[in-house]
């Protein structure tokens, strides 16, 4: 995907143009991160054990969530916020005439390089601490499994978080919906074990939110059996197909209804 490389390059140049903004994005995301770290503070000050996992182990979950948030704000967030704009101001029309997948153009065009830096950095540090503290061996198998689950998480993130943006094909005001989506997103900050069973079931099978950040750490802690791993993989593929279908439906509606 040479095109994607070019997108990234262009974004990089554009962002270098405004160093002030770049710094500001860094700071904004750091403050959000700070808010998230308050949870870590609570965990350590109360010496919280969830399901027998000590605070250090919980860092694996919080760290994974932080990394995922970084990836989300860096790669998807700007694009998903822009899709309603494209529809409103008609930029989508021009994209429709390009011989490249419209979904690709519209949903992955922008990459923000400043926003994810603090999240990814701190997230991986947390994972590192947790990894070390829980005496998890650093083998290729562990790394590969974790990496794969991280990747699956990214795909599910894409599929779930693009839905509010897709709604803007049918409704005018979708800002609040994505706001809700963002506050639900943070439910992932902790291992799902702290939620009652019915919440866990909804979050796993109805809206597979918990698949995004829970399975990676669970795999490392040896709590994940192959059945669930397979489930995550299938879920991500099915979701991707569904979103693809939805997208096509939306564009079809767009081009047969608008003026």
């Amino acid at each position: 995907m040479r095109l994607y490389g070019l997108f990234i390059k262009n974004c990089l140049i554009a962002q270098m143009e405004f160093r002030g903004n770049f710094m500001m994005s860094l700071i904004v995301e750091s403050v959000y991160l700070l808010a998230k770290l308050l949870y870590v503070l609570v965990v350590f000050r109360t010496d919280l054990h969830v399901d027998g996992i000590p605070p250090e182990g919980l860092l694996l979950f919080i760290g994974m969530h932080t990394v995922m948030t970084g990836i989300y704000v860096g790669v998807f967030f700007t694009n998903f916020m822009k899709i309603p704009e494209y529809i409103k101001d008609g930029s989508l029309d021009l994209m429709l005439t390009k011989p490249v997948s419209l979904q690709f153009m519209a949903s992955l065009r922008y990459v923000d390089l400043a926003l994810p830096i603090p999240d990814i950095l701190v997230g991986f540090v947390m994972i590192g601490i947790g990894w070390h503290a829980m005496d998890i061996p650093l083998t290729f198998l562990q790394l590969a499994g974790f990496g794969l689950l991280l990747f699956i998480g990214v795909i599910i993130t894409y599929c779930l978080m693009i839905i509010p943006a897709l709604l803007s094909f049918w409704f005018v005001q979708t800002g609040s919906v994505s706001e809700i989506a963002h506050s639900v997103w943070d439910a992932n900050n902790f291992p799902m074990a702290i939620y009652p069973a019915w919440v866990r079931r909804i979050g796993t099978f109805v809206i597979p939110l918990f698949l995004i950040t829970n399975f990676g750490p669970m795999f490392l802690l040896g709590q994940l059996n192959w059945l669930y791993g397979g489930l995550a993989l299938t879920a991500s593929l099915v979701l991707f197909a569904v979103v693809r279908l939805l997208w096509n439906q939306a564009v079809k509606g767009y081009s047969s209804a608008s003026s």
């Binding site: 919280l48 919906v177 809700i180 506050s183 943070d186 902790f190 702290i194």
Partner: peptide, 16 residues
């Protein structure tokens, strides 16, 4: 919708 959005962090904190 904002109120609903505010409910989720409250819920999460409740469980925590």
């Amino acid at each position: 919708l904002g109120l609903i959005g505010a409910m989720f962090p409250i819920l999460v904190q409740y469980f925590i």
